[in-house]
Design a protein around this nucleic acid. Sequence first.
DNA 1: AAGAAAACCGATTGTTTTAGTCGGAATAGC
DNA 2: GCTATTCCGACTAAAACAATCGGTTTTCTT
Lengths: 142, 142
Amino acid sequence: MKLSTKGRYGVMAMFDLALHYGQGPISLKSVAQRQGISEHYLEQLMGVLRKAGYVKSIRGAQGGYTLTRDPAQITVGEIVRIMEGPIAPVDCLLAASKNNEYCNRAQTCVTRGVWAKVRDSITAVVDSITLADLCKEDQIKE
Amino acid sequence: MKLSTKGRYGVMAMFDLALHYGQGPISLKSVAQRQGISEHYLEQLMGVLRKAGYVKSIRGAQGGYTLTRDPAQITVGEIVRIMEGPIAPVDCLLAASKNNEYCNRAQTCVTRGVWAKVRDSITAVVDSITLADLCKEDQIKE
DNA sequence: AAGAAAACCGATTGTTTTAGTCGGAATAGC
DNA sequence: GCTATTCCGACTAAAACAATCGGTTTTCTT
C-alpha cells in the first residue's frame, strides 16, 4: 500500500508550481532543489504531467513550467492518477480487468468488497484536496 | 497504491479459515484450491500468520490450520499489517523513520498531511471490518 | 509397522517495478 | 554566441514480488 515516488514527487512538484502560480515559468532546477528531488528524474515526471495537459512548458533560458489551470481546479487525486494510474488497491477492481472468471467466485468477491471500500475512502480524500488547499495550509504554517 | 498478494492472499486465506471456524483443522491444500492460490506460496504466508499468533497449525495427516480467535475478534486491518507491515502510503509517516531532516521541510509536511489523511481513511475501513463481517456477507450472497 | 497426508523450512529464481543516471539534441533569452 | 533550460531515449542497479523446488518432520490411518 505504498505510493511510489512518481505520485509523491508529482504532487510535491505540482504543489511547488502552485505556490509560484502567476509568477511566470518556474525552472525544474529550482523545484528540484526546493523539494529535494533529482532534477533529471523530475524531468521525466513533468513530461507525463505535460502530456496530460496539467502543466505548460517554456523552453530555453529563463524557461520552466507553469500550471495550466488555477490551483483550486487541480486535485491531488488527479495528479496521483496521472502519475500512478487508476487508484485501486487490487487489480480486480479495474473495469478493464479480464480476469472475470477469477472474480466471479462468490468468496473472492466478499474480500473484493473490502478493497472497494478502501479504494472509495482513498479517493474521497485525494479528490477533495486541491493544490489551493495545500497552499493555504502552507501559509498558515509560516 | 497496490496491495501485494501477501496481503490479499492473507485475507483470503483467513476468511476461508473463518468460514470453517469450529470445524477442526483445515488443510492448506483445500484453502489453496478454493481460493485459487499456489499451495506452496500460501504455505509461506501462513508461516507468518502462525508466528504472529493468528493461526494454530496441526501437523501430520488430517492436520491443517485453525484460527486462534473468534472471527469476530480479527479485523482485516490486523491481517494486512501482519502481511505487509504498517499501513502508510509514504515512509515518512512511520514513527521509526530516520529521514527527519527531510520531513522537517515545512513544504514537504504540507503534502505529508495529505498522506496522513489517506492513511487514516484506509485504517478506518480495514480496522472496522472483521472476518465475521465477511462471513455474514458471504451468507447473504448465497 | 507402513504409508500417506500434511505442516515446516530454506534456498533459489525469473520477472517486474522502482528510482533513478547518462548523454546529447533542440530551443530561447541575454 | 553563450548559457540556461526543456526534451528525448536509452540504459541500469537494486529491490520487491511471486512464486517454485526439494527435502524434512510429524501424525493419522490402516
